[in-house]
Amino acid sequence: MLKRTPVIAIFIAALIAAVAVYFIEVPERPFTFGHLILLYILSYSVALGIALYFDPRSQETKEKYLKINFYEEK
């Protein structure tokens, strides 16, 4: 993983969390601070995937594992 990948994910996660709050939150039942922290953590896991998608190391990992047959008996 490149050093920039988890940093980029911080910003993408903020965007995902903001969009989720905008579309999901009901005014009568506002999210608490704790809910927002949890939402951000979950958004970060998705954001990390999006950032990894543009990380060449992630693609190299996929190609490395594609060459291995884990079900071949030795």
Partner: peptide, 24 residues
């Protein structure tokens, strides 16, 4: 190996995010 790949995070993270929304 699974968690070094992009789509794992997107889809598994998405599943947990969706669970959060359903719980709400």
């Amino acid at each position: 190996g699974t968690y070094l790949q992009a789509w794992t995070w997107i889809l598994e993270g998405g599943a947990f995010l969706f669970l959060f929304i359903r719980a709400y």
